[in-house]
Amino acid sequence: MSEGKSILVDTSRCTACRGCQVACKQWNQLPGTQTKNWGSYQNPADLSAQTWKLVRFAEGKKDNGKPYWYFFSDQCRHCIEPPCKATAGYEEAISQDAQTGAVIYSAKTSELNAKEIVDSCPYNIPRQDEKTKALFKCTMCLDRISNGQIPACVKSCPTGAMVFGDREEILEKAQKRVEQLKKTYPKAQAIDADTVRVIYIVTDDPSKYHQYAAS
């Protein structure tokens, strides 16, 4: 299925306010987690069964010696052909919503081999809950988008870095934005746009943003 819905995450517009990260917690009623200062604004340090959306902060030096500080609002990409779903081979646990294409994990993911599922994800997204052993990740706010609302993260975005819509429309927007950005940033690209529903636009090498930014 190549139609359905998509989300565009234009990192060139992201200011890392983390409104999306908090909106996700708020809507999905996910508890806060104990964190500590590990020298980065990226907090919590990683995704977890309680944190499905995380703004990653990456810093370093460009080839020309100038510093960069990139923001990457990480979440499930809702792949068109999800490797996690194929690996599980168990529709009751991992399925795809017919209308939107959202990849959905149920409580039955506790019956799966968690390591196998996590390793199958090119973007290193699913996380296991220690108590229930079930796997958790972003749901694309299936409850909201099935009821005429946009995902909580997209709604909160103050800079318009995140946009939700029909896949065709989002692909078109991504293409236009990349063309525009290429004038200033020759390395601008829409990461894996043909195979995922959550499309990230970056202005530099994806690996500079996050180890698993691209597949």
Binding site: Q21, K155, S156
Partner: peptide
């Protein structure tokens, strides 16, 4: 509590503080 799309200034958007 979430952003008000009809609000002329924020148009539904909220930062981390407002979203909390």
């Amino acid at each position: 509590i979430e952003g008000d799309p009809d609000h002329p200034i924020s148009e539904g958007a909220l930062c981390a503080k407002g979203a909390a």
